[in-house]
Design a protein around this nucleic acid. Structure first.
Length: 297
DNA sequence: CGCATTTGACCGGCGC
DNA sequence: GCGCCGGTCAAATGCG
């Protein structure tokens, strides 16, 4: 199973919008507007949860098929994957970002099939994961905010993609071996493809920060809020605490109690969340991490 | 001044 | 053996 399967950010998440009574919002927002919005969000939440469950189901099915295939090829003494075909496909492939795993597998596999299969399993263990992040096409930065701190150590223009590929190491290196490659998709330049190699051996700094207290929120784009991953419930649940003080709101129009302003505020927050690439990046990282935990081989 | 980023040079693997 | 290519290094540069 290629880990490059798309994580549909728009459909695989469930949100728990925590609008507590202490928040700036509740102090000023009429109940009807909030209720409408919350009902709408709840409905979307249900739909998204169903879609997530469906995606997980399909993933499990594919995973079991792949395991069957692997065990059968082991029994027959055949190569686990058609490596030559993969190599040819690599040369022809439009999406040059899907080759890392195949490249690794295709090396030194001619001599011994068993060693080849071992190599595949080793590669799976190295935890190469891929995250796709929607950004504005005009945005030329290769920054995928995922909560961890990265140090850029190189940039290259690769052969079959005009967009440069940026190389990052975890800022905790050398103690943390994780590397990240970020490149725009050749097909859709508004999509950033982040390839993660290895696993962090330290906690996510942003979550450590979140745990320090209610006023230590994570900045998701222009919206200051705290974010935490709740894995105790059936699906990946991301809690956004919108009660965090928001400078933009504070500095906004003094007529903060007017219904027009409240509606504008709600719409603004909703659109900011859905459009902000850093928000989707953080969600993507959280989801991929969750998938890795849940379905690791 | 210290740190992060940029960018050209270098290295190793691979195919011809 | 040579050239191509992806990945990494490290000096130069920029920025707070």
């Amino acid at each position: 199973m290629d880990s490059s399967n798309w994580l549909d950010l728009d459909t695989s998440l469930s949100f728990d919008l925590n609008l507590s009574s202490q928040g700036t919002l509740n102090q000023t927002t009429p109940a009807t507007l909030l209720e409408d919005k919350l009902n709408q969000v709840n409905e979307e939440n249900k739909k998204l949860s169903e879609l997530l469950a469906l995606t997980c189901e399909k993933y499990n099915s594919l995973k079991s098929q792949m395991m069957d295939l692997l065990s059968k090829t082991n029994e027959l003494g055949l190569p686990a994957l058609p490596f030559d075909a993969l190599k040819k496909r690599k040369a022809e492939s439009i999406d040059n970002n899907n080759n890392d795993v195949n490249q690794g597998n295709s090396q030194n596999c001619s001599s011994d099939d068993d060693s080849c299969n071992k190599r595949i399993k080793e590669d799976i263990k190295t935890k190469i994961s891929r995250v796709y992040v929607q950004t504005k096409a005009s945005d030329t930065s290769l920054v995928v905010k995922d909560g961890y701190q990265w140090r850029k150590y190189g940039q290259k223009v690769t052969r079959d993609n005009p967009s440069p590929r940026a190389y990052f190491k975890c800022s905790f290196a050398p103690s943390c071996p994780v590397k990240k490659k970020v490149q725009r998709s050749a097909e859709d330049r508004s999509i950033l493809v982040a390839t993660y190699e290895g696993e962090h051996n330290h906690p996510d700094p942003s979550r450590v920060e979140t745990a320090m207290g209610p006023n230590h929120g994570v900045i998701l784009g222009s919206i200051p809020c705290s974010a935490s991953i709740n894995s105790s419930i059936s699906g990946p649940m991301i809690t956004l605490d919108l009660t965090q003080p928001c400078n933009e709101v504070k500095n906004a129009s003094p007529d903060i109690k007017s219904p027009v302003f409240k509606q504008f505020l709600i719409e603004q927050m909703a659109s900011s969340l859905t459009q902000d690439p850093t928000f989707t990046a953080a969600l993507a990282a959280a989801i991929s991490g969750r998938f890795k935990q849940q379905y690791s081989f």
